[in-house]
Nucleic acid binder design. Structure first.
Lengths: 124, 124
DNA sequence: AAAACGTATGAACAAATGATCATATATATA
DNA sequence: TATATATATGATCATTTGTTCATACGTTTT
């Protein structure tokens, strides 16, 4: 390996690899990119107070947009936008009855995450 | 209640409350704001691919910044910034040995969240 | 048919975010 | 002491995010 190759080997970092064995082991254990990205998007959906409040509300019972807005003290529009976000991620689902849209939890795995996180916060 | 009061009752929403009993019940079950905010910040920390990769790497073994940068194929600076974010949230901790900084998982509740989420991703 | 109502959505904007670059800090080595 | 190395950090910038406003859409009521 000449100087050029050695240089390119560390082009992504400003410093050299210190523990080659560690790097190799950890690289070998790496998760598929798509999996990490999807995981990140799930956590990101839960990473906002408004959306958490919506989820927690729907954990109690099915609700329409208007009632959610009243509970959260927010604009109907703001709530509707966030409901869309959560629905795109298949976290919640919608049921229409006339002009009223009822939302409820769709993905119940989310509840496990929510409760695990909540327990964590409680036990600080 | 006069017209003025009735109007202020629904000032946050563009529409009227449809199910008063539902709104009351859900309001009664509301979580404390600080708890929701803290919960959101935890999930937000996990809501980024880079940070998830860092956490997953540190789940394997303790690592220094340089090796992490090599594994992630990222700048030392970018990694350092994210490490700071995670450390501020007490998710990871730092051990210094000379000029080398070794990071490792601090909050092991995070691992439960990580694995629960991962399981969720795997099952569709 | 017209008006009222619940909901959805696009545009606009401020705030937050994540990466990069340059540089500072601190420790080790020559 | 001077230099090299590992890490930290402030400034900058492009992108993303969350809310608001205005308005459109679809259903119900009058």
């Amino acid at each position: 390996m000449d100087a050029k190759q050695a240089e390119s080997k560390v082009e992504t970092a400003c410093c050299n690899v210190i523990h080659e064995d560690t790097v190799e082991r950890v690289k070998a254990a790496e998760l598929p990119v798509e999996q990490v990205v999807e995981l990140a998007s799930i956590f990101q959906a839960l990473g906002d107070s408004t959306r958490l409040k919506i989820i927690h509300a729907l954990m109690q019972e099915e609700m329409c947009v208007c009632d959610l807005a009243a509970v959260l003290g927010m604009t109907q529009s703001a709530v509707s936008h966030q409901l869309r976000t959560l629905r795109n991620l298949r976290t919640i689902k919608r049921r229409k009855e006339g002009r009223i849209a009822y939302y409820s939890i769709d993905d119940h795995h989310i509840l496990t995450l929510f409760n695990t996180g909540l327990e964590h916060v409680s036990h600080r």
